[in-house]
Design a binder for these strands. Structure first.
Length: 591
DNA sequence: CGGTAGTGCCAC
DNA sequence: AAACGTGGCACTACCG
């Protein structure tokens, strides 16, 4: 049972009111969506949480059978959460539309009934405004509030019903309807999860973080000044390199000073400086001493600027870091994060992530997801066999040795596989590719077909059916331009680049789908078990949960079962395992 | 002066 | 300097 939420139709003459519309499951016959729909409530848009609470009784349906349907569910969910209301299932019409319209011809020529752009979650400033307004409004209603007067262009609930029907027809018309429906459900569930993670927040001890900063950088400096330790290092660099007016924050300035001091590098990157030191032979120690202060400055300056006092002021409130995720924010379907750099919390500050008293953090990290995904997608039996062991790379090396290839050890196996998925052509991984192809023709074949499609300018899809974006008009023009040798070189470079993108897209995107299903399964199981433990953080293939210590053992089991269930959801009787590293700890840094 | 490209580093 | 995928973010240098 779908329950649609949206503005009353203009014809009803109820401006400013919303309706809840019950729509039976399954694709409705064309054009009859509104006839099958039954209005079950009319209410102020600030009352959606109440409507959600009352719905099971009004509809005579258990709460977990109701699929709440609206564009940008995240905005609604934020209001529901603030009133302690959590829903089991939803369908986000905007997120679904973004997936379906990316390649209409593969979903029966889907055309949106109404345009439903995916909205960014509000930043802190505008959510403060929303905080003064009655809770429970959808984001487009907020927009109307802020600009004064109702938004006449906001689609009404009957239009939304027609859109839902169009989306269901599109899913049915796709090559793999069940997979696409799973993707739309998982993406929608993601919107709920992202909002819940944001609302709950990752435990973050500001005092511990501040002590760390004090110990490594010295006391907090006045605004516009460097911390003492960095100031000291700046002086040290200047004297080591014999450059008086050196600005250590300016790569140009540092590079000039380095070159004048006889350091033969082309950039100031850490890796290149390290390589120069290592290349020093007998002089290595001397070189290390010469660049020591520069390298140390870079390390500490990064901590200061990215996760220093400013970051703490801005992003940590009452010992919680509230990560803002954008579901499907990356073209591949990965989540991105907005604000606070949630997807790049460096290991250096994870010691400030500490469970509350009596609680534990359960941290689960999925190992080697992408090669396992590749094995499952390509149904490459040999790679799948490697993927059914805890260390896929080690097993690949074993098979490589047995077959007499150059994939002799774990490191080479890893470099070869990662290189194949990224489209490396040079160096070790390029040289190992033929060996990998010999061992795993189906897996490498899948990657090479995806790359070829990209080079042609075509689209590829993930396992569940998320299409890659088409290259834009400029790309096509540039690729068609082959008048001169330079044109041809440029066209070839662009084609290869697009090929690398589509090659990686299928694997990265399918891995993101697995992770989405994993989290969805975790969420469902936590709810069904009635636990107080919550998801509080997510980074691509890692989840963090926070909850009462006595629940931890059960939670570890749930996280494990959810990973296996995600594998089965995507690939059926999964030919590969998705092993996790799971631990329950007081401190994130100890996981 | 604000916008933006370039640089470099963090995460996966 | 690019090579080998996806991002965010902070800083400098430069441009209109």
């Amino acid at each position: 049972m779908n329950c649609l939420l949206g503005p009353a139709p203009v014809s009803a003459g109820e401006p400013g009111l919303w309706w809840a519309l019950a729509v039976a499951d399954g694709a409705s016959p064309e054009g009859s969506a509104s006839q099958q729909a039954r209005p079950v409530a009319r209410f102020e848009p600030s009352q959606t949480a109440r409507i959600v609470r009352e719905a099971p009784e009004r509809l005579g349906v258990p709460a977990d059978r109701i699929r709440w349907t609206a564009p940008n569910i995240g905005g609604l969910s934020a209001a529901w959460l603030s009133e302690g209301v959590r829903v089991a299932r939803c369908h986000d019409l905007a997120l679904a539309q973004r997936i379906l319209r990316a390649r209409p011809e593969s979903v029966g020529g889907y055309a949106p009934v109404v345009d439903l752009p995916v909205e960014q979650p509000q930043d802190e400033a505008s959510s403060a405004l929303v905080g003064r307004a009655p809770a429970g409004q959808s984001s487009f209603f907020d927009a109307a509030e802020l600009t004064g007067g109702p938004d006449a262009s906001a689609p009404d609930v009957l239009q939304l019903a027609a859109e839902l029907a169009a989306q269901e027809r599109a899913a049915s018309a796709s090559t793999h309807p069940a997979r696409l429906r799973l993707l739309l459900a998982a993406e929608s569930q993601g919107a709920l999860i992202a909002e819940e993670i944001h609302a709950t927040g990752l435990p973050w001890r500001a005092d511990v973080h501040e002590r760390l900063l004090l110990e490594t950088l010295g006391p907090r400096p006045a605004e516009g000044e460097r911390p003492p330790r960095l100031q000291e290092l700046a002086g040290q660099i200047a004297s080591d390199l014999g450059a008086v007016d050196l600005n250590p924050d300016s790569p140009t300035s540092v590079l000039r000073a380095l070159q004048q001091a006889g350091v033969q590098v082309e950039s100031t990157r850490q890796g290149e400086l390290q390589r120069w030191i290592e290349a020093g032979g007998r002089d290595r120690e001397q070189r290390r001493r010469l660049l020591g202060s520069t390298l140390e400055y870079k390390r500490l300056a990064r901590l200061w600027t990215a996760n220093g006092w400013h970051w703490l002021d801005e992003w940590v409130r009452e010992d919680r870091f509230h990560a803002r995720y954008l579901v499907g924010g990356v073209v591949t379907g990965r989540w991105s994060a907005h604000g606070g750099g949630a997807m790049q919390i460096p290991s250096a500050v994870r010691s400030a992530v500490l469970a509350d008293a009596g609680q534990l953090l359960t941290v689960a990290d999925a190992s080697q997801v992408e090669p396992r995904i590749l094995a499952a997608m390509s149904q490459d039996e040999a790679l799948a066999a490697a993927g059914s062991t805890p260390d896929l790379y080690r097993e690949v090396a074993k098979q490589g040795r047995a077959a007499g290839t150059r994939l002799q050890d774990r490191d080479r196996a890893k470099v070869a596989l990662l290189g194949a998925m990224y489209g490396a052509t040079t160096g070790d991984s390029g040289a190992l590719l033929p060996h990998l192809r010999r061992l795993y023709p189906r897996a490498v074949g899948l990657l090479e077909r995806a790359a070829a499609e990209g080079e042609r300018g075509g689209q590829v899809s993930t396992w569940l059916g998320r299409p890659s974006p088409s290259p834009d008009e400029r790309w096509h023009r540039a690729v068609a331009q082959t008048g001169t040798r330079q044109d041809e070189a440029r066209a070839a470079t662009l084609r290869r680049g697009q090929g690398r993108f589509t090659r990686n897209f299928v694997v990265q995107g399918t891995a993101a789908e697995w992770a989405l299903c994993w989290m969805g399964e975790i969420r469902r199981r936590l709810t069904e078990a009635g636990l107080g433990t919550r998801l509080v953080f997510f980074v691509h293939d890692e989840v963090v949960l926070h909850g009462p210590e006595p629940e931890a053992e059960q939670v570890r089991g749930i996280v494990q079962q959810a990973a296996a269930a995600a594998g089965r959801l995507l690939f059926g009787a999964a030919p590969v395992d998705f092993p996790l590293t799971v631990s329950s700890v007081r401190c994130y840094a100890d996981a």
